[in-house]
């Protein structure tokens, strides 16, 4: 425990190596993870959490690179978690989000971490959220989570951030219809990147038109920006756009409301996980399980009744223990 505490202490004091190691421990589901997360939680909550997502090849990394620069120029320290959702659960991964990151001038103020979804224990949302909480607690004022919007991961980061920026790119022949509906729904800010290409303005106006039809979330009219990140065009406006949304959230306790809603679902998920893990653990160690399976197989009982019985037994055993589930098994 002492070792863990020393690690936490050093990380909270800003030691990069310790921060990096803590993220690894949490990511890997190490025994120390629980203690780390409990200790850092009270220190977290001060950062502004930004999620950046969009289809592959839209230029998200370049935008992240430019935003890092702007945040640093304005005196903020930045943590980034770049999530690759494509890697399989087993096997290795190849993460390339760092390629585009150049921040020599401000290296002290930036912490960039690559994460593969396949690696993650208990789901991407949990580990990404935990890692960003660590960055927050260790002093990063801005925490960016970046991921490709191709499935679940963008919804996960929407559950973990204050502002979602969706980056899209005008492709010849394509139009707004090809944008995933999910992306349209979660975006607070849209960046039509590579705006030097034909079709960018058309795309921006059709996004605006679509947003006009959608219901407002927290009284916010999502804003749409044209950017050409490689040329450093439109990025200043985008940066201001982020702060506009943040200021909007700060008014009338909207930020608190948004975060509390997120906490609610996080809490449910966490309990889910804990219950699920301990129940599965118990079942796997149950010597009678084979006998029960035999009964189900020979139709002495049915699988539905059997399942309900197991759950009922577990519930009876669990009552009165108030969530200290790891002692239970």
């Amino acid at each position: 425990m002492k070792k863990t505490d020393r690690l936490i202490e050093a990380a909270l004091a800003g030691d990069k190596l310790s921060i990096a190691r803590m993220i690894s421990l949490v990511e890997r589901g190490d025994d120390q993870a629980g203690r780390i997360l409990e200790k850092i939680y009270p220190q977290s909550g001060g950062a502004y959490y930004i999620g950046i997502t969009g289809p592959p090849g839209a230029g998200k990394s370049t935008i992240v690179d430019r935003l890092i620069h702007l945040f640093c120029v304005n005196g903020y320290s930045v943590g980034v978690i770049a999530i690759d959702p494509s890697s399989p659960f087993t096997g290795g991964s190849l993460l390339g989000d760092r390629i585009r990151i150049n921040r020599d001038a401000f290296k002290e103020d930036v912490f960039f971490r690559s994460m593969s979804a396949g690696r993650v224990m208990g789901g991407l949302s949990r580990t990404a959220k935990d890692a960003s909480r660590i960055l927050d607690a260790c002093g990063k004022e801005i925490v960016i989570m970046e991921t490709v919007g191709v499935g679940q991961s963008e919804l996960d980061i929407a559950q973990a951030t204050d502002t979602i920026m969706v980056v899209v790119v005008p492709e010849s022949g394509d139009n707004i219809q090809t944008l995933k509906a999910g992306l349209m729904e979660i975006g607070d800010i849209f960046a039509v990147n590579k705006s030097d290409r034909a079709g960018a303005e058309d795309m921006a106006s059709s996004i605006k038109a679509m947003l006009d039809l959608a219901p407002l979330k927290m009284d916010w009219h999502p804003s749409v920006f044209l950017t050409a990140a490689t040329l450093n065009q439109g990025v200043d406006e985008l940066y201001e756009g982020l702060w506009n949304h943040y200021r909007h959230l700060r008014k009338e306790d909207r930020l608190k409301l948004r975060r509390k809603n997120q906490l609610r679902s996080e809490l449910v998920r966490k309990v889910d996980e804990i219950v699920f893990e301990s129940l599965r653990d118990r079942m796997n160690r149950d010597e009678n399980l084979d006998l029960l399976l035999e009964d189900i197989w020979s139709k002495k009982t049915d699988i539905y009744t059997a399942a309900r019985n197991i759950a009922d037994q577990w519930k009876a055993g669990a009552s009165g223990k108030h969530g200290h589930t790891d002692e239970m098994s």
Binding site: P56, G57, T62, S86, L94, G96, R100, V148, T230, L231
Partner: peptide, 11 residues
């Protein structure tokens, strides 16, 4: 003047 580009090898 033209900005820099990185190839989209990793999507």
């Amino acid at each position: 003047e033209f900005g820099l580009w990185s190839f989209p090898l990793m999507g």
